[in-house]
Design a protein around this nucleic acid. Structure first.
Lengths: 239, 239
DNA sequence: CGCCGCATTGACGTTCGTCAAGTCTAGTGG
DNA sequence: CCACTAGACTTGACGAACGTCAATGCGGCG
């Protein structure tokens, strides 16, 4: 067997409720186990897939942290998202049978490989899986609407506050702290995602530190005043 | 019968190739005809659905022009897209069974109502429909990636040029002119979509007119030099 | 004919980008 | 163990792009 691939089972995966439909019976779960037959390890800095590559599978992140980004023809690039354990990446590839963005691991990672044609045939049999797929794609569309709002109408402080709150909320849902987090990405990658230059990201962090809202030591961030961050994101609401 | 609802058939709709899968046999087409049993008229300025409303159906636009927008808690709003005949709206509602944006008709419109539970059950039988649904959702995700690139890294002229090229390309695919178009939205709505203020949109139009790239008379736009617009969007490529 | 919403244009201010210098940290090798 | 280095980060000075505010123009509709 390829050393990069290992047999696994969703049925005893503790991330099941994050990436798989809930309330499956034993028989359906067994079918899904067989579909997700392979895992793949991705080293920090390596790509899981690249723009232009043929699309075959979706990937559920088991461990690790990814960024996805697209490049315009003249070389600018835009980080379109940061993904963590339990999230699914690769949905962009469905429409034209090839990926339209790059997925890069920001720390050593492991993903479950889910061949898309098997997902399609299985979701014709298992209603919960079909529904789940639709929800995952719809959730991504809604998430991107939120990013459009952020990029289209927020100022630097608001963008960074929203970013931190979103990250810590997702980490908390995975059992991590509500107030402390380690950034897996550089200031430049944060800036790309938020439509800011890295210097502006850095300055805005410094501003938050001055205000006593967060403590920052390189990539270690402690949120001291969550409410203050919320007020930054939603100025009017605080009145 | 409700006067707002009319019986129709996909099988003789000239937009079929835009909103439905291609290569269906007569039997499958008949099943889909029965699913899309109802049309609905939406007057200019009226909403097709609103943020918070229960999600029941997707809508294929038969005639007319829509915008979708989301509002942040403190009142800012962001136009997330403009949709024209043959495009499908409502995908945002799937994930939580309620709509998360508003869809407003920018001119008198007519949509085909496609109840989502019927789409789901039918796409278990008709593979082409299942595949089509997946592609539509993936296409929307990829489109939004492009908007993120625009909002995150482009300057005002680049944004407006990209916007005009995208609009005219979609109109051309529907049999309209490659060079002339009528904007169905205000400068403010364009600005909201592009992350600019309406004055900046107006000034940028004026700049294009000065340069002889486009002619603008209110909402009537004629693109004089398509290549110039392309060069604005992709500066490096022109070298 | 006059009103109203939309659009244009100008003057000015703010935010963020650019450029540059300097600091910190982790990793490497002597 | 410590010096060295490369990459990431911080900070400052300055300028450009875009936002804000305000006045005016235009066109459609009652």
């Amino acid at each position: 067997m390829n050393p990069q691939t290992i047999k696994v089972a969703c049925s005893n995966c503790n991330l099941r409720e994050l990436c798989m439909p809930i309330g499956l019976n034993a028989q359906d779960l067994d079918l899904i186990d067989r579909m997700v037959a392979v895992r793949r390890k991705v080293k920090r800095g390596a790509t899981l897939f690249r723009n232009g590559e043929t699309f075959t599978s979706l990937y559920a992140i088991r461990t690790g942290f990814f960024k996805t980004s697209i490049a315009s023809e003249d070389g600018r690039d835009q980080v379109t998202g940061f993904q963590m354990a339990g999230e699914v990446i690769g949905l962009d590839g469905i429409v034209n049978d090839q990926h339209t963005c790059d997925a890069v691991a920001l720390e050593d990672a492991e993903v479950c490989v889910m061949p898309f044609d098997e997902i399609e045939s299985l979701s014709r049999e298992v209603n919960a899986l079909q529904r789940h797929m639709h929800k995952i794609m719809s959730r991504e569309i809604v998430r991107e609407h939120g990013v459009m709002l952020l990029l289209g109408s927020m100022r630097a402080e608001e963008r960074l506050a929203a970013f931190l709150l979103n990250l810590v909320q997702r980490l908390h849902a995975r059992g991590f702290s509500q107030s402390e987090l380690i950034l897996r990405m550089t200031r430049e990658e944060i800036g790309s995602y938020l439509g800011l230059k890295l210097e502006t990201v850095s300055r805005t962090f410094s501003k938050f530190v001055e205000d006593g809202t967060v403590e920052v030591k390189q990539r270690h961030v402690r949120i001291v005043d969550t409410e203050a961050l919320r007020r930054i994101v939603n100025p009017q609401t605080s009145l």
